[in-house]
Design a protein around this nucleic acid. Sequence first.
RNA 1: GCGCCCGUAGCUCAAUUGGAUAGAGCAUCAGACUACGGAUCUGGAGGUUAGAGGUUCGAGUCCUCUCGGGCGCGCCA
Length: 615
Amino acid sequence: MRTVVRAALGEALSALRSEGVALPENPEIGLERPRLAEHGDLATNVAMTLSKAAAMKPRDLAEKIVAALNRRAAEGDSPIAAAELAGPGFINLKLRVGAFHAVIDEVLTKGAAFGQHPPRDTDARVLVEFVSANPTGPLHLGHARGTVVGDALVRVLRAAGHAVSTEYYINDRGAQVLKLGLSVRARATGGAVPDGGYGGAYVTEVAEWMKQHHPERLASDDDLALARVAGERIMEGVRETLGKLGVSFDRFVSERALTEEEGKLELAMARLEAAGLIESRDGALFFKSKGKGDDKDRVLKKSAEHGGDWTYFATDIAYHVDKHTRGFTHLIDVWGADHHGYVPRVRGALESLGYPKGAFEVLLLQLVKLIKDGQEVKFSKRAGNFVTIEDVLEEIDEATGVPGAGRDALRLLMLIRSHDSSLELDIDVAKKQSNDNPVFYAQMTHARMCSIARRVEESAEMAEARARGVLSVPARFDAALAARLTLPEELDILALCDSFPGLVVEAAASRAPHRVAFFVLELAQAFASYFTRMQKVHNEPILPQKSYRDAHPDWVATWDWEKTRARLLWLSAVRQVYANALALLGISAPERMHRDAPDEAPEAAPELAPEAPQG
RNA sequence: GCGCCCGUAGCUCAAUUGGAUAGAGCAUCAGACUACGGAUCUGGAGGUUAGAGGUUCGAGUCCUCUCGGGCGCGCCA
């Protein structure tokens, strides 16, 4: 639809150019769907964006474009039926139905690639770093948002044609991992847990595992070596959890290997030193970040009395410098909003080293509140009473009886909010097998779409129609068949589908995967509404219902099968777009829902009407 | 105290990045419906976009201030 309309607009513009209007060769043509029906099917603001180049007032230019479009429309071979000047220079377009039907053609031709854009014509390489949780404990709910949003962002960026790699940075050196090692040792040997050490059941598990598989580590007094093995054990669990969430990384980067074995830390520090950005003070080394977006200088290397070690900040600079060194031109980090204070110093360091402004970008995610039984669940990591992602996944899988339900639920619920809005995750809603649960609603919609086609191809009552060759799902686009699609609901949904590829680009540009989630729910709702209205308002179900078949003994002969096939054609396109959108979120699109879930909860047992009439 | 984010319908949140009359889902009210996949569909009511000023053809969106909430302000990571 947009494709053919853009072509028509481009043609009108070049016609004007040949008449002497100063217009650029291949201008961007912005098209949007007006909110109000009387503003047409599509609207463009080209007259406003090109008015400067043409040295004309927006409305005057718009008038010329409108005239050109209407001239063409009168000749009868344009997708545009009528154009109208509106407001400050908008051009409202009324389209022929064929323009809507073209969406079906495009979707079925592109299939799973509808919404995917070709690689961008640039050398830009993007690296998205996300999760990067310390290997000091299992992933908990606080990590879930960054994990899911980061992963969905990557999918969206790739769909928009960006070259993207992903990395998980493992902070496997430094004080925190050492504390983990000491906590494990304490648990294994019955000693006291160190100050600020880790509690929680998982520490006990690691301690038990250590006794079994690495008793020599416990016997040795090399705390660093012990901590390292414990950290690796934790990371195994983290990777498993990521797998269950459907998240994979191109690379896991070890802070220890990067800095200690590969020497990247010295390299980065030498560059800072050479640039005169390091200052020695109070026995420590400082990065002169003050005035570079930060409000004070920051320690790179601690003084002897604080252990003399490099700080996390120093190694993080090394990591980010290394990202650039490896050829990535644009770095995106996904962090929790509680780290926002850390952004200026990293940015300051990278810009001081000459990397372009804007090459380092941080997506900050607001916090997640877990709601259970209508109450907020508070948790603290140190005390160990946090909710792990594993627990949540398991709880939802069990409650629904559907393996993978937890992953889909967690993913959609994390993606249904903008990144800078805090998020309430109601675990009780996530477990529901009803339409109050957006996850269930979203997936059921896809299952319903599939069930129609299944009915056509498999059901016993349609056997005779199949046998007579009047009923089948069209294999490819057929303009004559599509011409039977004239209901406003059908055309509206095609218009919505048509907006999907553009939406992907916008979602990528604004780092907003949640917009894809909203698209899914909007399409689901539009479909549900259409589906019901077909029966209740238009009295035109896609397939002949029992009532029709009973009333018409010769229903196979009297039914309008071509209209049915037109709708099946329509449906296969809509389903494709819907499935593509779900795939972009990493959420499965089931062909059928499990039916064995309990229909009614025990507490929903019918009660006697309080005022039942007596006799 | 300073910095960052947020404040939109009773609740949870959107808003095509500065565009036309601010929209959905729950909740509520009124109808229709007994099902081509499950309480579904249609419509109503609900708003000075926290408040005040400013920028311009045009502001929920940008700037300043006030109020309220969250987070951060370590030689932790």
